[in-house]
């Protein structure tokens, strides 16, 4: 359908005030065999916007919606460094104009045992990485979120124990998998700030905290990077963080999940599936691995 070349100029030079509400051109998700699409009921946009974890803006679920509105997302740049042939920086407008956007309807399973179904707009991470030509020595990818305390009240908490900026990581084969998405929008429009504007990662077979928001840096590395939650509580959060009903969080079971939205009389508790139901697509990445050890 619509190509990247016809992105309206307002997307390219948008004013921060209306940054989260612009229509994006994209092609529809069709391929359910590859896991790009699910027919499950989508979580309403309103709920996706008001129920988030984005600790830079506070630890409460509604804090990000309240506090992220003042985040400056324009101008925005993303640097790609490390084990690549051509390290460099991309500006958001370059990104939007050089990659064909597509819709992906994914399940999102939070490590806290709730889940959503979200129609993302984005492009495969592999396409962006390919542009910088990773060397054969690149075994891992490290991602970083913007760290700007003046606009992020959560990072100023005196009793917070996170070492900012927020960091995440993937193995290179995970990063190159067609399901790994760089999202710039949801529900057809640019990302709301609280959902990780202007660009974020979405890795649907892993717990949500792997899908790092408001990306400013990607580094290709020879060895496994240290990631925020693993560093904070290594017995609770592993580097892989693959959705797995058989590996419980020390403080709660991962056997089931609450599919949002829920109500008092309809808690919509469903069984959690291995790799969040994407086992067919990603299972081979972990062949022979002890998933209880590498959780």
């Amino acid at each position: 359908m619509a190509g990247a070349s016809i992105i309206p100029s307002q997307v390219l030079h948008k004013s921060p005030a209306s940054a989260s509400d612009l229509e994006l051109p994209y092609s529809n998700a069709v391929d359910s065999r590859q896991g790009f699409f699910t027919k499950e009921l989508k979580t309403p946009l309103e709920d996706v916007k008001r129920y988030c974890n984005f600790y830079e803006f506070g630890t409460g679920k509604t804090d990000p919606e309240k506090h992220a509105q003042s985040l400056t997302t324009d101008p925005w740049s993303l640097e790609v460094q490390g084990e690549v042939l051509h390290p460099g920086t991309l500006h958001l407008e370059d990104i939007l104009s050089s990659f064909q956007l597509e819709e992906r309807i994914y399940r999102l399973r939070c490590v806290e045992a709730w889940s959503m179904v979200i129609p993302w707009i984005g492009f495969p991470l592999s396409k962006l990485l390919a542009r910088f030509e990773p060397k054969s020595s690149a075994k891992y990818v490290e991602f970083r979120t913007l760290y700007r305390p003046t606009e992020m009240p959560g990072t100023r908490s005196i009793f917070g124990s996170i070492d900012w900026p927020y960091r995440e990581g993937l193995r290179i084969d995970e990063a190159m998998h067609p399901l790994s998405l760089l999202a710039v929008g949801l529900y057809g429009k640019t990302l709301p700030n609280q959902n990780g504007a202007p660009i974020r990662l979405v890795v649907p077979w892993k717990y949500g905290f792997k899908s790092i928001k408001s990306l400013v840096s990607i580094r290709l590395l020879r060895s496994q990077p240290s990631t925020t939650w693993q560093k904070l509580a290594p017995n609770e959060y592993g580097f892989y963080a693959n959705v797995n009903p058989d590996v419980s969080h020390p403080r709660w079971s991962q056997r089931t999940e609450r599919r949002l939205p829920t109500s008092f009389f309809d808690p919509r508790r469903i069984n959690t599936e291995l790799f969040n139901g994407y086992a067919e697509q990603v299972g081979s990445l972990y062949a022979g691995m002890d998933l209880k050890k590498y959780f």
């Binding site: 709920d47 008001r50 129920y51 679920k61 709730w114 609450r258 949002l260 939205p261 829920t262 008092f264």
Partner: peptide, 16 residues
């Protein structure tokens, strides 16, 4: 809050 939906989408977490 529960009646008017102000409890948000995750009622379990909200009530707890």
């Amino acid at each position: 809050d529960l009646i008017f939906g102000r409890s948000g989408p995750d009622v379990v977490s909200y009530i707890m």
